[in-house]
């Protein structure tokens, strides 16, 4: 469980990136943090594994105050995949890259082998085992970064902009993969601008604007509320927009993804005929 209690954060240059943020994320919860550029999303999630410590307020990860432990200790529990994979890739092969953290955490060599193979397979990277990460495409590098974190099986997974640069197939795999993680009672926190992805995942949504949390609720509550959507400078999913346009035909207006739309349309056609 992650508890954020009245956290404010100011960067050394004086930018106040978080103001009095309070938030609780339970075990096994799937949360998408959304909001405009510069809203403070990355700053907030960096507090979860202790990379940044609150200027005021406190953060507890499973009851442990993040001020009291090192990043390496927290990282064992909270895996964090950075926005830009190029900030972490440095090994000669993809395989070594994925094994790097496992070696740091002192896993045994036989376990490392197994976990690396598992993570590479999971992210469709097995064929690149021996390739240099620098030779891969942007989307593939992103997946290597993801694999290198998932490999140690952290309890909480934080993904900063995971869908950027991923083709449709990989996005869908990512979604299924997150569903799998949730099924294993892991906590997944994503930072994203991809409303369609969030609508499809049907996660919880935390909306942020100007360093504050504007609202938290289900994807449906958040993405169909036009006042909130405007405040956080995002747009509703296209499905929601279409059904909003069709409201005077008597269509429901609180739909966010294709499955719901299909149901609604079928119902509507049945009633009609």
């Amino acid at each position: 469980m992650i508890e954020v209690k009245g956290v404010s954060f100011t960067y050394p240059n004086g930018v106040e990136a978080l103001r009095e943020v309070s938030l609780t994320i339970h075990d096994g919860e799937f949360v998408a943090i959304m909001g405009q550029n510069g809203a403070g999303k990355t700053t907030l999630v960096k507090q979860f594994n202790g990379l940044l410590k609150p200027t005021r307020g406190e953060i507890f990860v499973d009851g442990v105050n993040t001020r009291k432990v090192s990043v390496a200790t927290l990282a064992r529990k909270v895996g964090f995949v950075f926005q830009n994979p190029d900030h972490q890739l440095f090994c000669e092969t993809v395989e070594d890259e994925v094994a790097f953290a496992l070696r740091n955490f002192g896993f045994e060599e036989s376990t490392i082998k197994k976990r690396v193979a598992w993570a590479l397979n999971l992210l469709d990277l097995t064929e690149y085992r021996e390739t240099s990460p620098f030779m891969l495409s942007g989307g593939e590098r992103k997946r290597v970064a993801l694999a290198s974190v998932l490999a140690w099986n952290p309890k909480v997974v934080v993904l900063d902009e995971p869908t950027i640069g991923q083709d449709h197939k990989q996005k869908e795999k990512l979604r299924q993969f997150i569903v799998q993680l949730i099924a294993q009672r892991k906590t997944v926190i994503i930072v994203t601008h991809d409303v369609e992805f969030v609508a499809e995942c049907n996660s919880h949504v935390v909306l942020m604007a100007q360093g504050k949390i504007v609202a938290k609720g289900s994807a449906k509550q958040m993405l169909t509320n036009s006042a909130l959507v405007t405040q956080a400078s995002i747009v509703s999913p296209q499905i929601t927009q279409i059904f909003l346009e069709l409201a005077d035909l008597g269509m429901p207006i609180d739909l966010i993804n294709i499955h719901e739309a299909r149901e609604a349309l079928l119902n509507f056609l049945e009633v009609d005929s």
Partner: peptide, 28 residues
């Protein structure tokens, strides 16, 4: 930051090890 989240501890080990610890930072 990125390497620290992957368990890299810069201040760990003897002198040579500490210098080697900077490789994951210098290469990227």
């Amino acid at each position: 930051d990125a390497q620290k989240t992957r368990g890299l501890e810069l201040e760990r080990g003897n002198f040579i090890k500490r210098i080697r610890n900077y490789i994951p930072i210098l290469i990227p």
